[in-house]
């Protein structure tokens, strides 16, 4: 989607303001927001891509002023409601009105959660004999791909010519994973010269790479 999250190359956001000795969390609720998002995700009801879609599909003003974990919490509420895991009345009251959806849970305990964090979730999928269409060194043209749904092809890199730098593997395809499908595609790192992306505003001697699924690419 052409959402407010797609920030690459946007002007007017001001200087980067690194802070020394910044705390990991700025308030206790931020730590709980992280934990709740990961723990709810561990129920297996939605993919990481679906949760990214829930964060970015919102009013631009809301996106840019909610703060990082504020967006996470708003997205988590939406995911919980959309999947029927909680009711709006329950969130408003701060109390459960009835039990869990019968087919969900039980919640992983601390040991299972520690194992899940240590294991991670691989995005790699068996290509089943399907070969990558491109090899490193190939020149490729990114598609002018502007779906209403989730995508990981940033606006600044659409309709641009770049060079395949690496084949990363046959990975779960974000656009379809966000829609609830477990479909994979070949993933490449594609590098663009700064001038290709930014014209005369490019700084000399700079390049940018993205990781792009084959569905985003054509022969140049």
């Amino acid at each position: 989607m052409n959402g407010p999250h797609d920030l690459g190359g946007r002007d007017g956001h001001g200087p980067v303001a690194p802070r020394a000795d910044e705390p990991l969390f700025h308030a206790p609720w931020e730590a709980r927001a992280l934990a709740l998002t990961l723990a709810a995700g561990a129920l297996g009801q939605w993919s990481l891509d679906r949760s990214r879609a829930a964060r970015e599909d919102r009013d631009p003003v809301d996106y840019l002023t909610s703060g990082y974990y504020g967006i996470w919490i708003k997205a988590l509420e939406r995911l919980l409601l959309d999947h029927g895991l909680v009711g709006a009345d329950e969130l408003a009251a701060g109390r459960a009105a009835d039990g869990p959806r019968p087919d969900v849970g039980p919640a992983p305990g601390p040991r299972e959660m520690a194992a899940a964090l240590a294991r991670g979730t691989s995005a790699a999928r068996d290509p089943g004999g399907r070969r990558p269409r491109f090899v490193p060194g190939d020149r490729v043209l990114t598609r002018n791909h502007q779906p209403r749904g989730h995508t990981r092809l940033p606006a600044y890199a659409r309709g641009r010519i770049g060079t395949v730098e690496a084949v990363r593997g046959h990975h779960l395809f974000a656009d379809r994973s966000a829609a609830g499908e477990d479909v994979a595609d070949w993933l490449y790192t594609v590098r663009f010269d700064g001038h290709m992306l930014w014209g005369t505003r490019a700084e000399p001697g700079t390049s940018v790479s993205i990781d792009a699924w084959e569905a985003y690419l054509d022969d140049a």
């Binding site: 709740l36 723990a39 709810a40 129920l43 919980l80 895991l85 909680v86 329950e90 969130l91 701060g94 109390r95 459960a96 039990g99 869990p100 969900v104 849970g105 039980p106 919640a107 992983p108 305990g109 601390p110 959660m113």
Partner: peptide, 10 residues
């Protein structure tokens, strides 16, 4: 609170 009461988070 809601998720804990429902047993959906520990």
């Amino acid at each position: 609170t809601v998720l804990t009461e429902k047993g959906l988070v520990d």
